[in-house]
Amino acid sequence: MPTARAIDTSDRHPIRAFLDLRWGGPTIMLDGRAIDAAALPGFVALDADGAIAGLITLLDDALQSEIVTLDAVQAQAGLGTHLLELAAERARALGLGRLLTRTTNDNLDALRFYQLRGFRLHRLAAGAIDLEREADPAIPLLGRHGIPLHDEISLIRVLGAD
């Protein structure tokens, strides 16, 4: 498995390029706010050649740490889970009681991934993607598996000693 470590300042340019390639850019919309995911704390995993193999970026508030991006180049190899657990350890160390993540109604793989790792459905923001599409017409009408893309789903994992 690639080596994962906390993001440092030397990672910012490669992370920005990775997010451009994998996410279409580093800007992530959260509740109408544009978040620069490339500037956030988190963890990066590098392969043997030094290329980014996985990334998790986090946004903290007084109660929780929110996963803004989570991406592993090779799916189902355990790296996403490893990065997620590093984020949980970090949140606990900061005294935060939970991890929050969001996905869209079409992302069945993410819904499965997070629920199998202790997350519970938290909130449905019906029509949230429709509103974002008004501001950014490039957001497609159809998502994964041909599912119409309309809603945002939040999931929460309460952090105890788990």
Rank of each mutant, 00 (worst) to 15 (best):
P2S: 07
P2K: 00
R5C: 03
A6E: 13
I7F: 02
D8E: 10
T9Y: 01
S10T: 13
D11F: 03
P14C: 14
I15H: 00
A17P: 08
F18V: 07
R22D: 10
G24C: 11
G25L: 00
P26V: 12
I28V: 14
M29E: 14
L30E: 05
A34I: 03
D36F: 09
D36L: 09
D36A: 13
A37Y: 04
A38V: 04
P41A: 09
G42F: 09
F43D: 02
V44P: 06
A45W: 02
L46C: 09
L46R: 02
D47M: 11
I52G: 09
T57G: 01
L59R: 10
A62Y: 06
A62D: 14
S65H: 01
E66S: 12
V68M: 03
V68K: 03
T69P: 00
A72L: 03
Q74R: 13
Q76T: 13
G78M: 05
G80K: 04
L86N: 08
L86W: 02
R90C: 01
A91M: 08
L94C: 14
L100T: 00
L100S: 03
T101W: 02
R102D: 07
T104R: 09
N105S: 05
N105L: 02
D106G: 05
N107G: 07
D109I: 12
A110S: 11
R112A: 13
Y114N: 00
Y114H: 07
L116D: 14
L121V: 15
H122W: 07
R123L: 14
A126R: 14
A126Y: 08
E132D: 05
E134S: 09
A135H: 06
P137K: 00
G146V: 10
L149I: 05
L149H: 01
E152A: 06
L155F: 08
I156L: 13
V158M: 08
L159N: 01
A161T: 15
A161G: 15
